[in-house]
Design a binder for these strands. Structure first.
Lengths: 112, 112
DNA sequence: AACACATACCTAAGAAATTTATGTATATAA
DNA sequence: TTATATACATAAATTTCTTAGGTATGTGTT
């Protein structure tokens, strides 16, 4: 019963940056599995969404990569650049505010 | 300093349905102003996003309309259809779950 | 009168982010 | 040998939004 993934829209970059902020170093497939386990299978981060997002974040200079071969399979590890470390702070703040406004609009908490 | 409106994506329908659930009857321009006042100007619901969304919800049978002339200006009032009243319940539940999962992914609350 | 601004509706072109559908390749378990 | 998991990737289509207009009335200002 995974909930509507369309809700990912607009928050995917922030999720990726935060995971890398907490975990220091992750590869793509690992990220999809981490999202799955954290949300107990409720949110599925699809590869068609993830990889282009990772490539964009790297192109924007927020992520750095290094490849490794494990069990004859190539892994591409991502980690935050210095710029990425700054960005994740503002992105998280923005997300917090958005969640707060959304809760107001949906009457999920009393009006301030 | 309105926050990134791209975060609206995926939640706009739910916001509209909920406003109409609380207010019974609203017209488009009124909805844009209500969102502005509730969020103290932080979220701006643009007309180019709102009107197509309203038309889609109506086409899907979730909203009903009636027009009125006030001060020589036409207002198109929207209200929830019976189907819309059912839908708003599931949409709100979905949004609640999404917010919850998002907070987990962003470390904004402790893991369950 | 002229102008700006608020009210009130609308749409079209473009951009951005996602889904869906593939493709490649290796390892492992049935 | 078949399916599933691991691991990367991209292209076409879809959805949703922004940007940028358009029409029209009322009000307040200069």
């Amino acid at each position: 019963m995974a909930i509507n993934n369309e809700l990912f829209k607009g928050t995917l970059q922030t999720i990726i940056l935060n995971l890398l902020s907490v975990n220091e170093r992750m590869y793509g497939y690992e990220i999809t599995q981490r999202v799955k386990s954290i949300t107990q299978g409720e949110l599925l981060l699809k590869e068609g969404a993830l990889y282009p997002a990772l490539h964009k974040l790297e192109a924007d200079g927020l992520l750095e990569t290094s490849t490794e071969v494990v069990d004859n399979r190539v892994r591409k590890y991502y980690s935050l650049s210095k710029e990425g470390e700054k960005k994740v702070v503002s992105k998280l703040q923005e997300a917090k505010e958005f969640i707060s406004q959304l809760q107001l609009l949906l009457n999920l908490k009393p009006t301030l």
